[in-house]
């Protein structure tokens, strides 16, 4: 599937902003991901062509930043904080509970494509520790407990 018309024009528009095509690469990747959840090879290649940069150049930044996903992710991306404050408040019990429930580890997606679990550094939710951010809009959740993970996973995870 190729990029939608409005994404294509958003990408070319970005180029006229600041710094030209180079500076627009990262923003293009973010926009693609916002729409598709992740950045596929096909979309990356298309963005490169639109921007007049090489695939190597765009992959250089795409693979540097941790929140550009170059692999398909589930419908809901769960980013669990593994920072110290969360750790001190039982993050690992929450982590274990989520992993057990979903049957996946960090960096994995459930076979049904519903969830992807990723560890992330401190999400700025230390006052809600253990915390995480969920979904495309990165909603902050916490304090989590092994007992309340159903709430963040939603109904389908039961």
């Amino acid at each position: 599937m190729s990029l939608s018309k409005h994404l294509r024009s958003a990408i070319t528009e970005e180029m006229d902003h600041h710094g030209g095509p180079r500076a627009a690469m990262l923003e293009s990747l973010r926009m693609i991901q916002q729409e598709h959840g992740w950045v596929s090879d096909e979309h990356l290649e298309e963005a490169a062509t639109l921007l007049g940069v090489t695939t190597a150049e765009i992959e250089d930044v795409a693979t540097f930043y941790s929140l550009i996903f170059r692999q398909p992710v589930g419908e809901k991306v769960i980013l669990l904080c593994d920072g110290a404050s969360c750790y001190l408040n039982g993050a690992e019990d929450v982590r274990d509970a989520v992993m057990k429930r979903l049957g996946i580890g960090f960096g994995q997606t459930t076979p049904d494509g519903k969830y992807t679990l990723i560890n992330i550094c401190c999400v700025g939710g230390c006052d809600h520790a253990p915390a995480g951010v969920i979904g495309r809009n990165r909603k902050l959740v916490g304090p989590l407990t092994p007992e309340t993970i159903d709430e963040i996973l939603g109904e389908d995870a039961k």
């Binding site: 940069v53 090489t54 695939t55 190597a56 150049e57 992959e59 250089d60 693979t63 540097f64 941790s66």
Partner: peptide, 19 residues
Amino acid sequence: GRDLDVMGAHDRVYFGRYE
């Protein structure tokens, strides 16, 4: 040249082509 670049981060930096 523009087809060789660095990819990845931390101790997994990779120097190569896109493919």
